[in-house]
Design a protein around this nucleic acid. Sequence first.
DNA 1: AATGAATGAGGCTTCATTCAT
DNA 2: AATGAATGAAGCCTCATTCAT
Lengths: 179, 179, 179, 179
Amino acid sequence: MPKIIDNIEEKIFKAAFKLFAEKGYNSVSMKLVAEDVGIAVGTLYNYHPNKQQLFFNVLKQNIKQMFSILNQVIEREGNTVEFITTLYDQAMRSRGFTEEIIKNSKKQQMIALKVDFIKMMKAIIHKVNERKKLTISAKNEEKLIRLVLLVIIDLIKEFPDEREENITFISNLVDRIYK
Amino acid sequence: MPKIIDNIEEKIFKAAFKLFAEKGYNSVSMKLVAEDVGIAVGTLYNYHPNKQQLFFNVLKQNIKQMFSILNQVIEREGNTVEFITTLYDQAMRSRGFTEEIIKNSKKQQMIALKVDFIKMMKAIIHKVNERKKLTISAKNEEKLIRLVLLVIIDLIKEFPDEREENITFISNLVDRIYK
Amino acid sequence: MPKIIDNIEEKIFKAAFKLFAEKGYNSVSMKLVAEDVGIAVGTLYNYHPNKQQLFFNVLKQNIKQMFSILNQVIEREGNTVEFITTLYDQAMRSRGFTEEIIKNSKKQQMIALKVDFIKMMKAIIHKVNERKKLTISAKNEEKLIRLVLLVIIDLIKEFPDEREENITFISNLVDRIYK
Amino acid sequence: MPKIIDNIEEKIFKAAFKLFAEKGYNSVSMKLVAEDVGIAVGTLYNYHPNKQQLFFNVLKQNIKQMFSILNQVIEREGNTVEFITTLYDQAMRSRGFTEEIIKNSKKQQMIALKVDFIKMMKAIIHKVNERKKLTISAKNEEKLIRLVLLVIIDLIKEFPDEREENITFISNLVDRIYK
DNA sequence: AATGAATGAGGCTTCATTCAT
DNA sequence: AATGAATGAAGCCTCATTCAT
């Protein structure tokens, strides 16, 4: 009784994305993802070799998208508020992931991904702030990037209905820090 | 074979605390806690109805302790650095917990605990800053408190060997915000 | 997308043979066979109703080939060493199968195959030994045939690099038995 | 609804023994063992950390018993027939295992076990034959030991109702080889 | 009150088989 | 006739929880 399913890859991506983003890695079972897509568990394994990799694949794809969008803002010479708005909206779409990036994972793949992520964020923030004199050390800058991400994730989770206020809050924070 | 155990409640608390703080909720099994205490699994269930509740109970107790210690700093008229140092060291002792506080749990109990936690933090910060004029709204203040906690937890996890630098970083941040 | 495949039956035979011989029944999946042939899994099922039957079919075919080759030795009036050498080399080509023959399968088909196999071996051995007086009972002869096969399979598996020694060993054994 | 089960270790041993001996490693599932014992699957894991280890544990225990019994024959100065009879009856009890010993496993534990097994067999056969002059090489002797075991296993499987004849057959074989 | 063996649901993964295209 | 995605049963293992002792 196999049936052909339209856009199954995309459906898996979206379901996995939604579930991991909402509930985090541990609270999402492969069965749950399969049910959400409306397919059998085994079918998942035709597209992703295991749960870890499903997670990574969705995450990687997500980060790619995120940076492509952020880069557009930079190229438009957007200011802090525009930048934070975009970052906020992207993070909104991927709560659970950004969280997972922030988490202290020992998995080699995850570490590599995090390093890349921080690097990209740094590059972008530098572009945004290139007209300002950055007087902080590289180490402290990494800490600040983490901070910005953390705050965004947290506000999204905690005050999901206050988009405008949250963005203002974070923008002020960033401007104050990169004064 | 049953044996009388001295201070069993306290022993459970300490062991559960240590383990949850070190490893986080999911990586600690009831068997592990029981073994660490030196009792049978069943005995744990005489004192805490299930794993969730054990976690909450220990967490509640931990927060109580934390505030009692922070209050002492306030009463000594400690400054920001002293306050952050204490907070940092307390958070250090309870990594796993604070992480769980930050996580977006839907459990009613957890939410209530978080509200209390923020309330207490607010009270303390007000005392620290009562000599300064606070010009931020109550809402934004709550956000700032969350931010400070988040940053502390994150730095502890990510740069565990840089205690001094981390404390300086956070203190500067706080002073800049509550300028 | 469907393509016409030349000699598909033969290709399936060869691939299945190679894989089962190398890896044994359990370690070969239908997908693996299909990939090795360069066809789709479904196509396999057009030629063999299921995995068991594929195995049997290939096995039967293999045994046929084997006897045809052994018969040539007999017709050439080969001696024990020549006969064992041929048998050894054939078994070498089909390790996985011979093992399965030896295994105690309850499947009716397998049993029938085994009976045939022994019968053919008997016929051949009788030819080899027709100049000697066989003084053993039919039953014991069957046991001896099984023994010879077993030993060949075992030596191939256990001491695969000692072809010459193995053949000598077995030939001596046979000569001693059919003294 | 836990219930206390009498002699559970022994029951697991016996069930695992029976099933592995009958069906071989791959055809026995943990569920099957549990059902045969009349316990839950999880309970198995209180006694053996995983399936591999369950198998090894039962196997090791079995080999121990086997050698202890064979040694008694040796000490009684039993002749070939007595020795083979005992070996035969032991192997009868443990078909699947002896088979597994003969199998070409890559697992380190299994290899070690096999080396030990062959060594013990060698020692025992030497005792049995000490009055005869052994003129075969060590390597060939190993091959002969394997042969004897193989034949025993095979005859048990193939002609289970002909105990007497099988034993006579094997004894004759051994005497002829170690002539 | 303490014990810890027993339970069994639930998680990840594999793979023979089916069937719409 | 060929395809290969989809299926789902079945396998191994973990662990929160129960309850007879």
